[in-house]
C-alpha cells in the first residue's frame, strides 16, 4: 500500500472548494438549528438554488459572474421567504418534513426534462465559470497561470482562485454569524430556540426573528452552493437529500451551537472522507479487505451513517460544543 499517497490525498482534504462549500452550508445550518432551533432538512435545496441561480443567470441571461452569484443569493432569499412565511408556524418535526420536501421539489424541477434548455436537466450545466466574452469567474482570476503551493496543497491558478475567493466568503460569513450571535439579536434568537412562547411574552416578534434566521442561514447555504459550483460543473445529482444529511453530520461533528464548530466539522468530515476513500480501496486492492474496490468505497458512507448515529447518541453537543449547551432541547 502506498501510504505516502494516502497521506497526501488525506491532507489535501483540508482545503478544497468542496470543504469550503460544506463549511458555509454547515454554518447556515448552525444559524438555523444550532442557534434558532429550526429543523431545516432542506439545506441541499438552498445550495442548489445558489448554484443554479449563478449558473443559469450566467449562461441563459449572460450576466457577469458577480451578478450571477448575487442572483443565486437572492434566489435563496426568495426560497427562504416562500418556505418560511407559511411553515415557520409549524412544530419542529413538521418543519423538518416540509423543508426536506421543498428541497426535493427544487431538485426535481432542476432535473426534469421540461426545462432542459435552461437547466440542462440530468446533465446539468457547464462552461459558466469561463466565458468567451470575458465575463466569467475564471476570466477575472488575478492569479497568473502556474502551479502554487507544496505537497498535498498544490493547486493550479484556477483552483487557487476559487479557494481564495471561497475563504474570503467564508471569513465574512463567520464574522457575520459571530457578530450577530454576540448581540442582543443573537440573545433573542437563542431565546426562541429555548422557548418561543416565553420570548413572545416579552414582546418580541418571534416570527420575524425566525424568518430572519432562516434567510441568513439560507444565504450561507446558497453561498456554499455557489462556491461548490464555481469550482466545477453543476448537476442535479449532487443536491440529493444525502447531501443535506452529510452537512448535518459536519455540523454535529463540530458542534451545532458554535461559530467555528461547523467550519472545523466540515474540515474533519472531508479529511476523514478523503482518508477513507483512499485507504479502503487500497486495503481492498492489497487484499487485506476481502471486498471489491467499488464495495470498499461504498463502505465509507456506511461509516458516515454509523458515525452520525454515535455522535448524536454519545456527544450531541459536538466536539467543540459546551456540554451544558446541548441543542436538543425540544
Amino acid at each position: 500500500m502506498d501510504w505516502g499517497s494516502i497521506l497526501n490525498n488525506t491532507l489535501a482534504g483540508f482545503l478544497t472548494p468542496t470543504t469550503i462549500a460544506f463549511a458555509l452550508a454547515a454554518l447556515g445550518l448552525a444559524m438555523h438549528f444550532g442557534f434558532a432551533g429550526l429543523l431545516n432538512f432542506g439545506i441541499a435545496g438552498f445550495m442548489a438554488i445558489g448554484g443554479y441561480g449563478y449558473a443559469i443567470s450566467v449562461l441563459t441571461f449572460g450576466l457577469p459572474w458577480w451578478a450571477g452569484m448575487l442572483v443565486g443569493v437572492l434566489g435563496s432569499v426568495v426560497f427562504a421567504l416562500i418556505l418560511g412565511i407559511p411553515t415557520l408556524r409549524l412544530r419542529g418535526d413538521y418543519l423538518a418534513i416540509a423543508t426536506i420536501a421543498a428541497a426535493e421539489i427544487a431538485r426535481l424541477l432542476f432535473l426534469t426534462t421540461a426545462f432542459t434548455d435552461v437547466t440542462g436537466s440530468a446533465d446539468g450545466l457547464f462552461g459558466f465559470n469561463s466565458r468567451p466574452d470575458g465575463s466569467g469567474f475564471q476570466n477575472s482570476n488575478p492569479i497568473p497561470q502556474g502551479t502554487y503551493g507544496f505537497g498535498p496543497f498544490t493547486y493550479n491558478e484556477q483552483t487557487l482562485w476559487v479557494l481564495v475567493f471561497g475563504l474570503i466568503v467564508l471569513t465574512v460569513a463567520v464574522w457575520f454569524l459571530w457578530a450577530l450571535m454576540r448581540s442582543p439579536w443573537g440573545r433573542v434568537i437563542k431565546g426562541i430556540r429555548e422557548d418561543e412562547e416565553a420570548v413572545r411574552s416579552l414582546g418580541k416578534n418571534v416570527f420575524a426573528y425566525k424568518l430572519q434566521a432562516l434567510v441568513i442561514g439560507g444565504v450561507f447555504g446558497a453561498l456554499g452552493g455557489i462556491i461548490y459550483t464555481a469550482a466545477q460543473n453543476i448537476s442535479p445529482g449532487v443536491y440529493v437529500t444525502s447531501l443535506t444529511f452529510f452537512i448535518w453530520t459536519s455540523l454535529l461533528l463540530g458542534g451545532a451551537a458554535t461559530i467555528f464548530g461547523p467550519v472545523i466539522g466540515a474540515v474533519i468530515f472531508w479529511v476523514i472522507q478523503a482518508f477513507l476513500s483512499n485507504l479502503l480501496p487500497a486495503l481492498s486492492t492489497s487484499g487485506i479487505l476481502p471486498v471489491s474496490t467499488t464495495q470498499a468505497s461504498t463502505l465509507r458512507f456506511v461509516l458516515v451513517g454509523i458515525g452520525l448515529m454515535l455522535l448524536v447518541i454519545y456527544r450531541p453537543q459536538g466536539i467543540f460544543g459546551d456540554k451544558r449547551e446541548l441543542t436538543f432541547v425540544k
Partner: peptide, 14 residues
C-alpha cells in the same frame, strides 16, 4: 418558561 440554556443575566436582559 425559564430559557434553560441562557444564563440568568441573559434571561433578564432579554
Amino acid at each position: 418558561k425559564a430559557l434553560s440554556l441562557l444564563t440568568v443575566i441573559e434571561n433578564m436582559k432579554l
